[in-house]
Simulated assay, not measured.
Amino acid sequence: MTTINTNYHPINQTTWPRREYFYYFTKMMPTGFTVNATIDITATLDWAHRHEVKFNAAYLFLVSQVLTRHPEFRVGMVDDQLVEFDVVHPSYSVLHEDDHSISSLWTAYSPNFSQFYQDYLQDIKRFGSQHTPMPKAPQSANLYMIGSIPWLDFTSYTPLPFTPLNTYFPVIQAGQYTTKGGKTTMPLSFTIHHAVADGYHVSQFYQDLRDAMAQPEAWLTTD
């Protein structure tokens, strides 16, 4: 199993470029926002089928890989100190077919897909059948929420927290994919605290993910 990377460095808020925006969007006008877009997953889905790899694992890996390229999406808190983590690890839901309940699992991110995939399969095997909200206890502050609703082709998905927004990692949700004319697309929702990112940053995430999904051979390995 991959050793979970919990490395981070403190953010100096006196020199941080987003200092004033962070203050504004946390103190004066606490705000988060959601962007929904459609992703072409044709190439990656085909790659997964040809290599007999679960598409969900490729989805989790590619999103995590893209997030490592954007410091805005790796901002967290440790002991009331604002920090930037080296990486973030996907925390995802699994469905129990017998009663349709869900459990939340996480798998340590590894920059090597083969390693990540093996860890993912082991986590599913060990914890996936346990009917409890969190069968695998969190071991780090740098877990981000990512999931999918594969039964629903939605056009909008917005998480509604019932407490003040106090987390800075993105929340990502995929929907049912649709194939038409040889092209398979998937809706994807991205929710983020406005204190750490703007619409531009989210648009860059989508562009990078689209590039990754279009070039699975360059991003995924099975060796």
Results as ranks from 00 to 15, higher is better:
147 G>P: 01
115 Q>I: 08
185 T>V: 02
59 Y>D: 11
110 S>Q: 08
155 T>F: 13
44 T>G: 02
183 K>A: 14
56 N>S: 07
156 S>H: 10
90 P>E: 03
9 H>I: 13
100 H>N: 13
86 D>L: 04
199 G>S: 06
168 Y>H: 10
42 T>C: 05
128 G>M: 00
109 Y>W: 06
222 T>H: 11
154 F>Y: 14
185 T>A: 01
51 H>G: 05
67 L>H: 06
109 Y>V: 00
144 Y>W: 04
5 N>A: 10
153 D>V: 00
173 Q>H: 12
51 H>M: 08
127 F>M: 01
97 E>A: 14
25 F>Q: 10
23 Y>F: 13
147 G>W: 07
115 Q>G: 07
88 V>S: 01
17 P>T: 09
61 F>D: 13
151 W>K: 08
134 M>W: 07
113 F>Y: 04
208 D>Q: 04
54 K>V: 08
12 N>C: 05
153 D>G: 00
158 T>Y: 14
24 Y>E: 11
166 N>D: 15
110 S>R: 04
206 Y>E: 13
155 T>G: 15
212 A>K: 05
196 V>L: 07
149 I>C: 09
212 A>Q: 10
124 I>V: 03
47 W>G: 01
66 V>D: 08
1 M>K: 09
212 A>D: 15
82 L>Y: 07
128 G>N: 00
164 P>Y: 01
120 Y>T: 12
122 Q>R: 06
73 F>T: 05
141 A>Y: 00
214 A>M: 03
187 P>A: 11
106 W>R: 06
202 V>T: 09
38 T>S: 12
107 T>D: 07
71 P>W: 13
191 T>V: 02
30 P>G: 07
166 N>Y: 15
47 W>R: 02
208 D>N: 02
104 S>N: 15
190 F>M: 04
134 M>R: 03
46 D>H: 11
62 L>H: 08
126 R>W: 11
35 V>C: 12
163 T>Q: 14
91 S>V: 04
89 H>I: 01
53 V>S: 07
186 M>Q: 09
214 A>V: 01
61 F>V: 07
